[in-house]
Amino acid sequence: MDILALAQPGVSGLHPYQPGKPVEELEREMGIREIVKLASNENPLGASPKVAAAIAEQSEQICRYPDANGFYLKQALSAILGVGGDQITLGNGSNEVLEILFRTFVGAGDEVIFDAHAFIVYRLLTQASGATAVAIPSQDWGHDLDAMLLAITEQTKLICIANPNNPTGTFLSKEALASFMSQVPKQVLVVLDEAYFEYVPVEERAPTVEWLAQYPNLCVSRTFSKAYGLAGLRVGYLVSSAEIADLLNRVREPFNCNSLALAGAQAALADQEFVTRSVELNRTEMARLESYCQERGIDYILSYANFITMKLTPADEIYQALLTRGVIVRPIAGYGMPDHLRVSIGLPQENDRFMAALDELLVEARP
């Protein structure tokens, strides 16, 4: 029996998403302890103490199904974002809301446009949907919006833009995005994936949620996994027109956000002081790593996110050597960047470990 032949055409050629190596896996493989993980763009400060308290209180009700509509979290988000609760779709991480968007709107015969070095999930979802991927070559490691506009055809259903982008950290200005949106045909959906939104300086952020009133084809996705430190709880959301949200909620699985995640996200949202502290730490430590690269002549991509992508060759050998020293970073050959490594911004002592380990390797590599 050929099980592969039974699968949908787009699924049979897929390969599972490869996350950053877990600490536990490296411990099992090499018996190493005191590991520094700088691979998955997690918040090194953890989460707000208010989150643990909210989860503890909610845990008394884990025998009950969660609120399928996430009323209170939507209410809190509505107050901050200035939109109606009927414009918000909650998901098990922003990955799921993107998947729901694809399942709702994208199918065989459609085209999906995205940057060649953008979040790999766009490509995976396009292929799984049976649609055609249109990967646009990057411009200075970032989105080439003019080329994206030129690539639009009658078959184009969706354009995915990550801003800041993962894994490069590049950023599109509010002026560039505004010009782009004004030129996209109304029948083409645009999703702005703003997973790293909180790390962008306030004065540089585009008012993307405000643009929803002008552009009914626009969707904005965000997550609690990064600056809010809730990667393990998996909570994300998408803001759109009420009409798009209505369709998404018809496709969305019931109870897709568990009760602990909903409570934790609501508590995290209420502690903006923690988010500010997280962003300030990221900015300070990013500057340290940039200075490190400059002093050693290492090429890096200017990042607006909570990671920095460095050109280090041979990247795979350096990645493996760092593992033996108890430091996990992220190889990104799967993103078409075989000569680069992505390094999450950690605590000062974690970044010190990384820089010291890399220094050892750079010394060993000298002729």
Score class of each variant (00 low, 15 high):
Ile3Leu: 13
Ile3Ala: 10
Pro9Cys: 11
Pro19Phe: 11
Glu24Arg: 14
Arg28Leu: 15
Ala39Cys: 09
Ala39Gly: 14
Val51His: 02
Ala52Met: 06
Ala53Val: 11
Glu57Tyr: 06
Glu57Ala: 15
Ser59Asp: 14
Glu60Gly: 00
Cys63Tyr: 13
Pro66Asp: 09
Gln75Met: 13
Leu77Ala: 10
Ala79Ile: 10
Ile80Gly: 05
Leu81Pro: 08
Gln87Asn: 09
Leu90Met: 00
Gly91Cys: 03
Val97Asn: 06
Leu98Tyr: 02
Glu99Lys: 08
Ile100Arg: 04
Thr104Met: 00
Ala108Arg: 08
Gly109Ile: 02
Val112Asn: 04
Ile113Gly: 08
Phe114Val: 05
Ala116Val: 05
Ala118Ser: 15
Thr126Ala: 01
Gln127Arg: 12
Ser129His: 05
Ala133Gly: 03
Ala133Trp: 04
Ile136Tyr: 01
Asp146Glu: 06
Asp146Trp: 07
Met148Cys: 12
Ile152Lys: 00
Glu154Pro: 03
Thr156Pro: 09
Thr156Met: 05
Lys157Val: 01
Ala162Phe: 08
Asn166Asp: 06
Pro167Lys: 08
Pro167Met: 03
Leu172Ala: 11
Phe180Leu: 10
Met181Tyr: 12
Gln183Thr: 10
Lys186Thr: 15
Leu189Pro: 06
Asp193Gly: 01
Ala195His: 04
Ala213Arg: 13
Ala213Tyr: 07
Ser221Asp: 15
Lys226Ile: 04
Tyr228Ser: 12
Ala231Asn: 06
Leu233Ser: 11
Arg234Glu: 11
Leu238Tyr: 03
Val239Leu: 01
Val239Tyr: 03
Ser241Pro: 00
Arg252Asn: 00
Pro254Cys: 08
Asn258Trp: 07
Ser259Trp: 02
Ser259Arg: 09
Leu260Met: 07
Ala261Gln: 03
Leu262Ala: 05
Gln266Phe: 09
Leu269Asn: 01
Leu281Cys: 06
Leu281Phe: 07
Asn282Ala: 04
Thr284Ile: 05
Glu285Phe: 09
Arg288Thr: 11
Ser291Arg: 12
Ser291Gly: 09
Ser291Cys: 07
Tyr292Lys: 02
Gln294Met: 10
Tyr300Ile: 11
Ile301Thr: 10
Leu302Ala: 09
Tyr304Leu: 05
Tyr304Asn: 02
Thr309Met: 08
Met310His: 06
Met310Lys: 01
Leu312Ser: 10
Ala315Asp: 15
Glu317Tyr: 02
Glu317Asn: 04
Leu322Met: 14
Thr324Trp: 04
Arg325Ile: 05
Gly326Arg: 10
Val327Pro: 00
Val329Trp: 04
Val329Ile: 11
Arg330Val: 00
Arg330Gly: 01
Ile332Pro: 11
Gly334Asp: 13
Tyr335Arg: 02
Gly336Ile: 03
Asp339Ala: 13
His340Lys: 11
His340Thr: 04
Gln349Gly: 10
Asn351Ser: 14
Arg353Leu: 12
Ala356His: 15
Leu358Arg: 00
Leu358Thr: 10
Glu364Asp: 15
Glu364Cys: 07
